[in-house]
Design a protein around this nucleic acid. Structure first.
Length: 612
RNA sequence: GGCCCCGUAGCUCAGCUGGAUAGAGCAACAGCCUUCUAAGCUGUGGGUCGUGGGUUCGAAUCCCGCCGGGGUCACCA
């Protein structure tokens, strides 16, 4: 890596010239700003104490030393305290020749035995997926890919929230008012059908609460005493006692939901390596709690409920088992974490869960530690912000929830409409066209969501998300399609990429003018070095995205690269170039850029079309 | 009220471990299709980086106070 060489040589220069050993952190080292001539910049201000010279003089000392000691440096320019170093073109050309066809460029080989677990999605089986889940799924899936690109063995886990009082509510409503309706008989997708009964429960329950209040009860009393809630609680007890009838109904309704979810996941293009169900992990949580109680780490109240006292940690008490012995959300998560640790011994357990649960995960880690699980440090909660709509938050009871299936369908249709209007698919078969609309619609949706920093709340404006111009997924896809088209045209024009060889001869000709009898055969324009610099930064970008768990970094990188390429594309007609070697070089730049765009988009779970 | 997160152009967002004149897109306006795909490109206008202090040669970035917005503090998940 040239950066390390520059850094090392700079330290050496300080040692030789000023006689002092310095740490690398003292050297301000960065890529040169775009508007300024140069490739890399050394900021000398921090070194002034050592050099005891002016910024300019210090930069000059270092610049001279580096230039005489590093072959790749062509020249340096000093602006105030900034030493801007320009590399020879041969550096970039050699980089291009050596990597454009490298199938693993930027990607690390899997090196870790211990896996990283990425849990995401984690749906409840009582209602269909909505826009919030979409952000979750896209983040989790992309994060998994990014970590894999960083050489981790990743296990993507979906923890299905298939038990608990909320599930019993939709079951109860179905028992009361379902009349044996099924997805087949109603023509509804299974998850939507079950969701319908959950909503129905909520409506009837609110009605009961209202009636009770009118008969003189306090609000909180009314909420607790509403017959529907008590019936639901009864179902939960029956379920935990493995009552056959309850269990069969539960299994049937969950089956419908899974089928519906699978459809949505397939459509969205996300995958899991492992699906866990809370119904089969919560018992482990109960065990953990009972053990903790025996060891005196937890305490039991008079009514029989079991609690963790977290006052020493500055938090409150937390219930872990209800008085009737049934478990709560926290109990399940304790059990799930324990099982994962025992069975997979992960390097890290990443939970992709909304930021409204930050407190929950803080508590989870503390309780685990309290129970003697030192590995709780390996838990990392990747919390992401809420998705807001132009008119405010999504609220199911106000009907402002954006359904995942509806949204994807809408994106598809807009993609189809726009694409047809532009006359892009006149020569496509039906299958090809359908496939393209899907790629574009989903590409737009995914990119729109992933380009935003996960931790921030984001605004989802349907009108804007459906725009395909500017900083959007389709813009990047379009750039890729153009590159592919260019490569096809080049081939039929007799310009073959492979014929140029891995490192074309032309790359070896560039030498300092003084020692070379002939001028360099080719020379790069600013746009071209600019693209090459970006391509050079790809591996580093992946590392940063991995370290920060940030798909947004990849998304913004892909856009910058595509934008840069479009400028190039507009300014420099490759196929019109008279110098054949120059034309070939530019083809390589195009091919390489296409590859990196494709890989970046793949890390976001976005497909790119070869024509559009 | 305690704790956590956010505040950058009219709108949506970038801005890497502090560095040079704070960047894109959308929207507005003006250009570019006998030229490798115009879902594109070029140009113009638009900013006291919420605010007041502090640290520093240097702050959108780090620290503290305040203001504004959101989240959370359930025997819901």
């Amino acid at each position: 890596m040239i950066e390390q060489l520059l850094l090392e040589k700079t330290r050496e220069a300080v040692r030789v010239i000023y006689g002092q050993e310095i740490s690398a952190e003292l050297i301000g080292f960065e890529k040169t700003k775009k508007e300024i001539e140069g490739d890399f910049t050394i900021v000398v201000f921090p070194l002034l104490r050592i050099s005891r010279k002016s910024p300019e003089a210090t930069a000059h000392d270092l610049g001279e030393y580096l230039k005489t000691n590093i072959d790749w440096i062509r020249e340096y320019i000093i602006i105030k305290g900034f030493l801007n170093i320009t590399l020879k073109e041969s550096f970039w050309l050699e980089f291009l020749g050596g990597n454009w066809n490298e199938p693993d460029y930027g990607l690390q080989q899997t090196r870790d035995e211990q896996p990283v677990i990425v849990e995401y999605s984690s749906p409840n089986t009582n209602k269909p997926l909505h826009l919030g889940h979409i952000r979750n799924n896209l983040l989790g899936f992309s994060l998994g890919k990014i970590l894999e690109a960083n050489g981790f063995r990743v296990i993507k886990v979906n923890l299905v929230n298939d038990r608990g009082i909320h599930i019993c509510k939709s079951m109860l409503a179905y028992m009361k008012w379902g009349n044996g309706e099924t997805p087949e008989s109603s023509g509804m997708k299974g998850d939507h059908l079950v969701g319908k009964y959950y909503v129905l429960f909520d409506k009837q329950y609110k009605e009961q609460v209202r009636a009770l209040k009118e008969s003189g009860l306090q609000e909180d009393e009314a909420e607790k005493q509403a017959p529907l809630l008590m019936e639901a609680q009864e179902i939960l007890r029956k379920w935990e006692a493995r009552n056959q009838e309850t269990f069969d109904l539960w299994r049937m309704m969950n089956g419908w939901v899974y089928k519906g979810f699978d459809e949505t996941y397939n459509h969205l293009g996300v995958r899991f390596d492992l699906v866990q169900h809370e119904s089969s992990t919560y018992l482990s949580g109960k065990d953990l709690v009972m053990k903790g109680l025996e060891q005196g780490l937890l305490n039991q109240k008079d009514d029989g409920s079991i609690w963790a006292d977290l006052k020493d940690e500055g938090l409150d008490e937390k219930v872990l088992l209800r008085a009737d012995g049934t478990s709560v959300y926290m109990t399940q998560d304790l059990g799930t974490a324990q099982l994962r640790y025992n069975e997979l011994n992960p390097l890290k357990m990443i939970y992709v869960v909304g930021n409204e649960q930050i407190y929950h995960f803080d508590v989870l880690k503390i309780i685990l530690k309290k129970l003697g699980c030192e590995w709780s440090d390996r838990i990392f909660h990747l919390s992401y912000g809420m998705v807001e709509l132009p008119h405010g938050k999504m609220k199911s009871r106000e009907g402002t929830v954006v359904d995942a299936d509806d949204l994807m369908e809408e994106m598809y249709q807009t993609a189809e409409k726009t694409t047809r209007e532009l006359g892009k698919v006149n020569e496509f078969s039906d299958d090809e066209a359908t496939n393209l609309f899907s790629m574009i619609g989903l590409g737009a949706l995914k990119y729109f969501i992933l380009k935003v920093d996960p931790k921030k709340n984001m605004l989802f404006d349907p009108a804007e998300s459906i725009d395909f111009t500017g900083n959007t997924g389709p813009f990047i896809q379009y750039t890729y399609a153009r590159i592919q088209s260019l490569l096809r045209k080049a081939e039929s024009a007799g310009l073959s990429l492979q014929a140029t060889g891995p490192v074309p001869r032309v790359f070896e000709t560039e030498r300092p003018a003084a020692r070379s009898p002939q001028p360099a055969v080719i020379s790069l324009k600013p746009v071209e070095t600019s693209i090459l610099k970006m391509l050079y930064a790809f591996p580093q970008t992946i590392r940063q995205a991995g370290a920060e768990y940030s798909p947004a970094r990849i998304a913004n990188y892909a856009y910058e690269l595509a934008k840069e390429y479009n400028t190039f594309y507009q300014e420099i007609p490759v196929l019109k170039e008279e110098n054949r070697k120059m034309a070939e070089t530019r083809l390589l730049i195009s091919a390489f850029t296409g590859e990196v765009i494709k890989r970046s988009m793949s890390l976001l779970g976005i497909e790119v079309p070869s024509r559009m």
